[in-house]
């Protein structure tokens, strides 16, 4: 049988895989991309479609020229290294807000110097920390049993030591306050929201409805910024049982973008860890539910096993009776023959 005609016919249905191209395409097979730098001759839809087909064909041809290996009923090729760099998916993260000290240092032109953490102490004869635990100041403060009084200071010994203790406490507290303020600056919106508003009773003032809170425009002696206040209002606006649905609105009050925790969906990407944890939890629940354990016995499995055993026993008995019958028949035949 001559199949060449059929083959030719089948072949004629499809376009040729050989494409003529004056200038080769710029291939980036790693990204499965090709760039055609030749100017377009015609802008008609048909011409563009044909051009794209040809170019895709060229790219596919190039793919087929890559070294391939077969794996599990499929042919695989390893794509080369990507040459085109794609832009990142999300916008770049914003730089961290400088702390108060960093801001101050910038204005004053104070540069950070690299200083070693350990310093040599001649008294000890070894390297000790410059500051903090086991530093010189620390050791001195701890081993202080005598303090020099300044001229004109008439404090008693007890007073001196309690005063020093108090001063130390005040310094620590001040630092804590500073850290808190820095946190506030850094977090900007979120932290400010929780502390910018004090709830008061619902009501009207001079005929105008006011939100159920009074704005506190200062925190730690610092004026809150407009953004911080706005954030505070947006938190406050959804801080009722109805998520602010039935509350009075102020004029020009922006709609709060905050949503209840319940409705929050996972982001498409960026929370894979959380997602995986959730999946694992659900999978565990599904698997454990599947095995219906009844007093330590998997009922469906037990019934199944019983049924199989029962069947085998019956089969065995059947075989046995057949065997016995055959034996009897043989015996009777033999007896007849005799």
């Amino acid at each position: 049988m001559d199949v060449s005609a059929i083959l030719a016919k089948a072949k004629a249905k499809y376009k040729s895989t050989d494409v003529e191209k004056e200038f080769p395409l710029e291939m980036d097979l790693g990204n499965l991309t090709a760039f055609d730098t030749t100017p377009i001759e015609s802008r008609s839809k048909k011409a563009l479609e044909e051009l794209s087909r040809d170019n895709v064909q060229l790219m596919v041809n190039a793919l087929f020229e890559l070294p391939s290996k077969s794996h599990d009923r499929a042919t695989l090729v390893e794509l080369p290294e990507k040459t085109t760099r794609l832009p990142r998916a999300r916008k770049a993260p914003e730089p961290r807000k400088p702390t108060r000290w960093e801001e101050f240092a910038r204005i004053k032109g104070i540069k950070k110097r690299k200083r070693s953490k350990m310093v040599f102490d001649e008294e000890v004869g070894d390297y000790i920390p410059r500051y903090g635990y086991k530093s010189k100041a620390d050791m001195e403060a701890k081993s202080e049993w005598v303090v020099e009084l300044k001229d004109g200071d008439n404090a008693t010994a007890e007073e001196v030591f309690s005063r020093r203790k108090k001063e130390k406490k005040a310094r620590v507290e001040k630092q804590k306050k500073n850290e808190e303020r820095n946190m506030l600056r850094k977090a900007g919106k979120s932290l400010a929201g929780s502390s910018g508003v004090v709830r008061t009773k619902r009501g009207k003032k001079g005929g105008k409805s006011i939100p159920q809170g009074e704005l506190v425009t200062q925190m730690h002696g610092e004026k809150l910024s407009t953004d911080q206040l706005r954030a505070a209002i947006s938190v406050q606006a959804v801080s009722t049982a109805s998520y602010g649905k039935f509350d009075n609105k102020v004029r020009n009050q922006r709609k709060s973008k905050l949503k209840s925790a319940k409705r929050r969906k996972l982001p498409v990407t960026g929370a894979e860890g959380v997602e995986k944890e959730k999946l694992a939890k659900v999978a565990d629940r599904v698997v454990n539910k599947k095995v219906k354990v009844n007093d330590g016995i998997d009922m469906s499995r037990a019934v199944n096993m019983y049924q199989v055993a029962h069947d085998r026993e019956r089969q065995r008995l059947n075989d046995h009776t057949f065997k016995m019958r055959d034996k009897q028949q043989k015996m009777s035949k033999r007896a007849k023959r005799k």
């Binding site: 969906k265 929370a271 997602e275 659900v282 629940r285």
Partner: peptide, 13 residues
């Protein structure tokens, strides 16, 4: 495109 909610995860699994 979005990740599954817990309810959907349960259904699928």
């Amino acid at each position: 495109m979005r990740p599954l909610t817990e309810e959907e995860m349960k259904n699928v699994l």
